[in-house]
Design a protein around this nucleic acid. Structure first.
Length: 463
RNA sequence: GGCCCCGUCGUCUAGCGGUUAGGAUCCAUGGUUUUCAUCCAUGUUACAGGAGUUCAAUUCUCCUCGGGGUCACCA
């Protein structure tokens, strides 16, 4: 069984990049009937917060990405880590290091001055003397000093590192006893049965260190897939400063989970020429072997297109439900089908859609100045009057076609072009020059409201 | 700087030795539409550069250049 995980550190909200790796992990587990688990990496007490954890969970809930089993919190697993630290100490695979922070800094500075690689010098690796006073020891693991370490990566292929280039005896437990990242990640992944790790390739250079831990503890390393970064328009790693990278901001902007997920799954992954993926299709088709090797630049043009596409293809009943978050209750509106049909081709986001709906169902309180100037010419008021009279004397009016007939009558009787009535009528009804078909608009708002809006516009343009 | 990764239209990408280098988006133009949008059609734009290997390189190898990541008692 394939078990994948998403392991965020709760130092902020969930952002686009994190979400994508989570999505990949989720899809791969689901496709194989496996498990997708969530682990909160909160070993650094100074930097983590409960709010951040909650924000991440909220985002997952909105998107409908469910994790399997209980959420694992690293902060609650100190006993486990302690056990393995003791084990390594007993076996002589780790040791206490009494080098003070000042001494370490000095060491690094000299190395930099000599243009050497900064690394711990192994001073206490085989120390058996009397420890210096006043220094709380950290625990360091004995890393191989030479040799080749090969990371078998499912995206990039085999990657070879030389131990002397990248390794030193790195700290696995801080002076206060708290274990460090590269140590606990390896332990947790092993203990949780994680056998396929999909993560950002910014972790690539950590992987050899984690393999040292796997090796020391006798654990089997998982299969790794390091997915390329998502870059901002400047070509740099996406960071929290890059505007709307908080996943929940996309909800605010009116994007649906379906469009966001579809957008993200195509960033760095593809399945031939296919652009549209339902959740089912993603689950059936996703395979990390098809993840591409190079970083992609984040850009929302395609998201907008996808979002528009999904709105167009969402059934009206579902759309009405989604619009409720904008305090639009359309369920009782007798012309909601016409309304939604007219608008779903015009909106890129739900938020835009909500605005468009309001522009129709609410009586305009202001009129676009340029539109008025352009639409109201000599005779416009008379035309509107004639049309108003038609409506008044007409019987029941329901469908767009009913109103359309009346417009045709006016056009024919007055021997004018359609635009002559269309332009001023549009401004009267909507307060602007653009929008859905006028017959539809009138059908949606009904006879009384139509007459009211025409009368308002006539009053306004008569003096 | 060391180490590692990457390099096809502006952007997302297909390609897996022989293609008129494909799709999508964006943009432009035309058509449909009383307007706007949708929709349809058409069009502009890419293999970073240089050596090799080969009958043949976008595709394989090397170098150069460019970009990115990472080098903590952060994760």
């Amino acid at each position: 069984m394939i078990v994948t995980r998403f392991a965020p550190s709760p130092t902020g909200y969930l952002h686009i990049g994190g979400l994508r790796t989570a999505l990949f992990s989720y899809l791969w587990a689901k496709k194989n009937g496996g498990k997708f688990v969530l682990r909160i990496e909160d070993t650094d007490k100074a930097r983590n917060s409960q709010e951040a954890t909650d924000a991440i969970l909220e985002a997952f809930e909105w998107l409908g990405l469910e994790h399997d089993g209980d959420i694992i919190y690293q902060s609650q697993r100190d006993d486990i880590y302690k056990k393995y630290i003791d084990q390594l100490l007993d076996e002589g695979k780790a040791y206490k290091c009494y080098m003070s922070k000042e001494e370490l800094t000095e060491l690094r500075e000299t190395q930099m001055a000599n243009k050497e690689r900064t690394k711990y010098n192994g001073k206490y690796r085989d120390f058996d003397g009397t420890p210096p006073e006043g220094v709380e020891a950290v625990i360091r693991i004995k890393a191989p000093l030479t040799g080749e370490i090969i990371v078998k990566d499912g995206v990039k292929g085999d990657i070879s590192f030389q131990a002397e280039d990248i390794l030193d005896d790195f700290v696995i437990a801080r002076a206060d006893g708290a274990p460090t990242y590269n140590f606990v990640v390896a332990i947790d992944d092993a203990l949780m049965g994680i056998n396929e790790v999909i993560r950002g390739d910014d972790h690539l250079s950590n992987t050899p260190k984690q393999m040292v831990v796997y090796e020391a503890l006798g654990f089997e390393p998982p299969k790794f897939y390091h997915v390329p970064m998502i870059h901002n328009s400047a070509g740099k790693k996406l960071s929290k400063r890059d505007g709307a990278t908080d996943v929940m901001a996309y909800k605010e902007m009116g994007y649906t989970p379906a469009s966001l997920l579809n957008f993200l799954v195509r960033l760095g992954w593809s399945h031939g020429d296919q652009e549209i993926f339902s959740m089912d299709e993603m689950q059936n088709l996703f395979n990390p072997k098809d993840i591409n090797k190079s970083a992609s630049i984040y850009n929302t043009e395609k998201l907008d297109w996808l979002s528009a596409h999904y709105i167009k293809n969402t059934p009206n009943s579902e759309l009405a439900k989604q619009l409720e978050q904008y305090e639009l209750i359309l369920t009782s509106h007798d012309k909601k089908e016409i309304l939604l049909d007219e608008l779903k081709d015009r909106a890129k986001t739900l938020k835009e859609m909500a605005t468009l709906v309001k522009e129709i169902i609410e009586t305009p309180t202001s009129y676009d100045e340029k539109a008025v100037k352009k639409a109201f010419k000599e005779g416009s008021v008379e035309i509107l009057n004639a049309f108003g009279a038609k409506i008044t004397s007409a019987g029941e009016l329901h469908l767009p076609v009913d109103y359309h007939h009346l417009m045709e009558e006016v056009v024919n009787e007055m021997e004018i072009g359609f635009g002559k009535i269309g332009q001023p009528l549009r401004v009267a009804l909507l307060g602007k020059m653009t929008g859905p078909g006028l017959d539809s608009v009138m059908s949606i708002i009904g006879k009384d409201e139509t007459m009211l809006r025409i009368a308002n516009a006539i009053t306004l343009n008569s003096n």
